[in-house]
């Protein structure tokens, strides 16, 4: 190897430490018996137990799960159909649409939240669970469409042609050839949409009304009112849940056709 290797590896290690250090510290300290200090006073599960008795937190969890579930179903349906419909369009129009779908993913989330809030306020829709769900579907549609399109483009056209040659009509081609082949991508999209919805803070922050507090909103208000060991425990749980969701989604995405 070249002499530069040592330095390169050292910086890479540092970068990895930078990425994982804070997460590891957070999880470790969620088991620390000491109330607020950084000194280790032995392992405990009491902060996790405390979470379990926090009524408001349980209500926020229920809200988060409900919003994630409904918005995932909505976004997967709308986004999946969008991907299938785009497939039939002239190439140029596909490109334009694809470009526009990137827009919701790149514009600052704070702006998306503000814009949705303005819309709901202007048309006098009271902010609540429904408005949050509508908003979550907006940022999840592009994710779903792009993930399903990626798989659609990788499909061997011969498979569909063969089915058609054997007398399948277009519905049968879709139902018995395209759909089974898309299944891993669809499940991957479901998992990603669910995780992103569960983790979203900003769009929720601007579109949630009274009674629509989600887990991230609850975490935010807890952080704002002061650092407590319970937040560490809750944060550790959220980290583990989203990591598992994404690991599962990615393994589905990478599975060969």
């Amino acid at each position: 190897m070249k002499p530069r290797s040592v330095g390169l590896h050292a910086v890479s290690l540092l970068a990895m430490l930078f990425l994982y250090g804070p997460i590891i510290v957070l999880v470790l300290y969620s088991f620390n018996a000491a109330h607020l200090s950084m000194t280790w006073r032995g392992a405990t599960l009491k902060w996790y137990a405390a979470l379990w008795h926090d009524e408001a937190l349980l209500a926020a969890t229920a809200n988060s799960l409900f919003i994630a579930l409904v918005s995932t179903i909505g976004a997967t349906g709308l986004g999946g159909l969008l991907a299938l419909g785009m497939e039939q369009m002239p190439h140029r129009r596909q490109q334009v649409l694809e470009g526009s779908l990137v827009l919701p993913l790149v514009i600052p989330e704070v702006m998306m939240g503000v814009a949705l809030m303005l819309l709901f306020v202007t048309v006098h829709v009271p902010l609540g669970l429904t408005t949050v769900i509508l908003g979550h579907i907006v940022f999840n549609i592009p994710l779903v469409t792009i993930m399903i399109r990626t798989r659609l483009r990788k499909l061997d056209p011969m498979l569909r042609e063969a089915a058609a040659d054997l007398g399948a009509d277009s519905w049968q081609v879709f139902r018995y050839v395209t759909l089974p082949l898309l299944r891993p991508a669809i499940w991957g999209a479901v998992l990603v949409a669910f995780t992103v919805s569960l983790d979203d803070f900003l769009v929720t922050f601007f579109t949630a009304g009274p009674g629509a507090t989600t887990l991230p909103l609850k975490v935010y208000s807890m952080i704002k009112s002061g650092v407590t060991p319970e937040i560490n425990a809750l944060s550790a749980l959220l980290l583990v849940v989203s990591m598992m969701g994404v690991a599962a989604a990615l393994s589905l995405q990478r599975r060969e056709v």
């Binding site: 990425l19 995780t195 991230p216 975490v219 944060s235 959220l238 980290l239």
Partner: peptide, 8 residues
């Protein structure tokens, strides 16, 4: 890490 909760 990018896919985990940003707030957290």
């Amino acid at each position: 890490p990018f896919w985990t909760n940003f707030l957290v």
